[in-house]
């Protein structure tokens, strides 16, 4: 900075406009303004507003909303219940989706069809899935009829933990699949072939070449699945047991906001949820930084 001003000492300083333009600030940035204003006003500000009202409870001291939440084991227990749902869902969706995404990373006939079918739950949303499940997994629904026809014992899939688990898996798994398929598609097969040429066995190629290259994708998909399933809401009510086994973190938010109109308490719980989710994302960024981050392409150079 001082060297620059010394060099310019003899000459008049160029106008501010030019100096800003050199750093990339000019009239074109005005195009960015509306979007920034909308996101600042409707996303950043509500967050700040939410934090501020959470410290203005309807009764009690400034921390009453938070102490209420953490001193009531039924309320604070919802964090563990959410984890008990979100962790297995995320693990299951990665364990099932990763091999499929890995097999599907190359183009083959039917890849588009599979992608389309897996897009359906993301397009239709969790309400429609819960609605279909109420029939499909009912004691007299197709799932139990099929189990009966196969001579297997019937299952109870609705209005309990299993119901919400299945509903969440049905949306989380396609999400993880599409994410990982994109990541795995970037892994060049010539790297594997090069390892084979150098004498690596199939196992060695998988553990020492393919897996390290795929790991960032798997980790990202897992953490995002965790964040998404952490906010499970309608299916916990519609196909779960909302007062007990699937009393997840979003339900106290819903009860406070919609049933008691106590937005300060609802905001406090939403902030607790946000902090947990940001922590998950933070861990993801940290761990990803420690993984292999070089090129996954095998091109020249």
């Amino acid at each position: 900075m001082s060297a620059m001003s010394e060099a310019q000492a003899g000459r008049p300083r160029p106008p501010l406009r030019h100096r800003l333009a050199e750093r990339g600030v000019d009239g074109t940035l005005v195009l960015l303004l509306p979007a920034v204003v909308v996101v600042a006003g409707l996303f950043v500000y509500p967050f700040v507003y939410g934090v501020s009202i959470s410290f203005e409870p309807e009764h009690g001291g400034p921390f009453a909303n938070y102490t209420d939440f953490f001193s009531d084991p039924y309320l604070s227990g919802s964090i563990l219940k959410t984890l008990a749902l979100a962790l297995p869902v995320s693990v299951a969706s990665i364990v099932i989706a990763a091999p499929i995404a890995f097999q599907a990373r190359r183009d083959f006939r039917g890849r588009r069809a599979i992608t389309l079918v897996l897009m359906l739950p993301l397009t239709f949303g969790s309400i429609l899935i819960a609605q279909g499940m109420q029939r499909f997994f009912a004691p007299f629904g197709w799932a139990n009829l099929a189990l009966e026809a196969l001579g297997l014992p019937q299952g109870s899939f609705l209005y309990n933990y299993t119901g919400t688990f299945i509903a969440t898996l049905l949306t989380t798994l396609p999400f993880s699949f599409l994410l990982m398929m994109g990541f795995f598609g970037g892994i060049d097969r010539t790297l594997e072939n090069a390892a084979a040429t150098l004498g690596a066995s199939r196992a060695a190629r998988f553990w020492r070449v393919v897996l390290p290259l795929a790991m960032p994708g798997i980790l990202t998909a897992f953490m995002l699945a965790l964040v998404e399933s952490f906010a499970v809401f309608p299916s916990a009510i519609l196909v779960g047991q909302p007062d007990n086994a699937t009393h997840v973190l979003t339900l106290p938010i819903y009860q406070a906001a919609s049933q008691r109109s106590d937005y300060t308490a609802a905001a406090a719980i939403a902030i607790i949820m946000t902090v947990i989710e940001l922590a998950i994302l933070g861990i993801m960024v940290l761990v990803r930084g420690r993984l292999y981050r070089g090129p996954a392409g095998g091109g020249k150079g």
């Binding site: 996101v39 950043v44 509500p46 967050f47 507003y49 939410g50 964040v227 906010a231 406070a256 906001a257």
Partner: peptide, 22 residues
């Protein structure tokens, strides 16, 4: 700031946003 609303599930900010709207 542009990425966060897409990554974070809507339930994290839905209530605060509704409170602000009211």
């Amino acid at each position: 700031v542009m990425l966060l609303p897409v990554i974070l599930p809507p339930m994290t900010y839905a209530v605060q946003l509704a409170a602000m709207m009211y």
